[in-house]
Amino acid sequence: MSHLFSHYNYWIVIVLMMTGFYTVISRGNMVKKLIGLNIFQTSVFLLFITMGKIKGGTAPIVMAGKEDVVYSNPIPHVLILTAIVVGVSTTALGLALVVRIKEAYGTVEEDEVQAEDIRR
């Protein structure tokens, strides 16, 4: 039981990942799909951050005179900064496309857009 809870951060990752993924698959509303995609990506950010944490670790700033300090691994944080930028631009581009789709079709429901596409 303690084993189950001591890794609670991974459980959060899994729950978020599946929530996001399910939203992407099951929703027909294009904005909701993008929100799902965003949650899905965020769960991966958490996965990276969680593996950088070291128990009792502090921010990796070297201080003079202190040698036995435990530092957290900064690399996952740096990687995820980049991945966040990627995620933000994906969301922005996706929303821009949805705005254009709304202008062109008058709807953001996937099945209605598809029905329009087939009609012509």
Binding site: L37, L79, L97
Partner: peptide, 27 residues
């Protein structure tokens, strides 16, 4: 527009999967 949107959703799922793979390798 719709084609690009669908590609965006699929493409992002694909590259996020790759990112997960890279994350586990780094771990």
């Amino acid at each position: 527009l719709n084609a690009a949107y669908q590609y965006l959703v699929m493409g992002t799922i694909g590259s996020t999967f790759i990112l997960i793979g890279i994350g586990f390798l780094y771990m």
